[in-house]
Design a protein around this nucleic acid. Structure first.
Lengths: 142, 142
DNA sequence: ACCTGATAGGTGTATCGTACAGCCATATGG
DNA sequence: CCATATGGCTGTACGATACACCTATCAGGT
């Protein structure tokens, strides 16, 4: 597949992003049987934004608040996150990882890391940097 | 977020790819209410590989054959694809788009195109080309 | 102080996408 | 000509999700 023109590039980007999206769930399931892609992403976000709220997660992942509510409830039941009423607003719940949650997440990150290391083994540092920048720029567009 | 080292780049790639994957379904739903992401990807694959089989789809998207079977059955019920017994192997069904399927897919592609045009408006041709190449290379790794 | 509307989140319910196990029909190779 | 492999389908169960609606709380205006 040659990528000569702007149009061709656009077409390829669409196709490849879509293919990736469709494969992601299955790939993640293979990666770590104990933690689904969904749980992993929510844990990741909570880890990177301690004290965040359900609404933040919903906004970031474009999900309904009811979905988030259930997912967070499940994570709480598993003892991976902790919900505490916010001091400044008693409607809101602030989220934090529990030690167990941090541990499971660390496991997941390690497994994913290995998979990516393998997957991106042939890439030069410059290639990786470019890819990282492209992706970040793309996602920030939302 | 600076991307200085190989490690940082790898981390960013993982995070951004995951975020993208998690947003994809919702984004696709907004794009075209009549055609889910799933249907669209299957139609796309059939369009690009006329006469392909259910097993090809399963392999390409890392899905169970039962899933594909049902999805294809749904598309057939909607009159978007046609299943015909293969001449060389009477167990297999070869898949083709119907005219209606081609039309719906064209609609979808147009809508997606517009969304991407907007999304990637600020990108130079060179940026797009690089992104396209990165993504293709990444997906081909499977 | 009170209404009023907005906001954070949870529940009821329905649907879709998916996997796994097991089935049948056909094909292929000793 | 049988044994095994392969392509696909069905039964069943579950997870993720949305939409509509509910409750509790907050913030502003009178």
């Amino acid at each position: 597949m040659q990528v000569e023109t702007r149009d061709e590039a656009m077409t390829v980007i669409q196709r490849e992003l879509t293919t990736f999206a469709r494969r992601a769930r299955a790939a993640a399931a293979r990666l770590h049987p104990r933690l689904s892609l969904v749980s992993a992403t929510l844990l990741t976000h909570v880890a990177e934004h301690p004290g965040c709220r359900a609404a933040d997660l919903a906004a970031h992942y474009l999900l309904d608040k009811s979905t988030i509510s259930r997912q967070v409830a499940a994570l709480e039941r598993l003892g991976l996150v902790e919900r505490r009423t916010a001091e400044d607003d008693h409607r809101a719940q602030v989220l934090h990882l529990t030690p167990a949650g941090a541990e499971v997440l660390a496991d997941y990150v390690t497994a994913r890391r290995q998979a990516f290391e393998q997957r991106l083994a042939g890439w030069s540092e410059e290639d990786l940097r470019r890819f990282a920048i492209c992706l970040t720029r793309y996602n920030d567009g939302f």
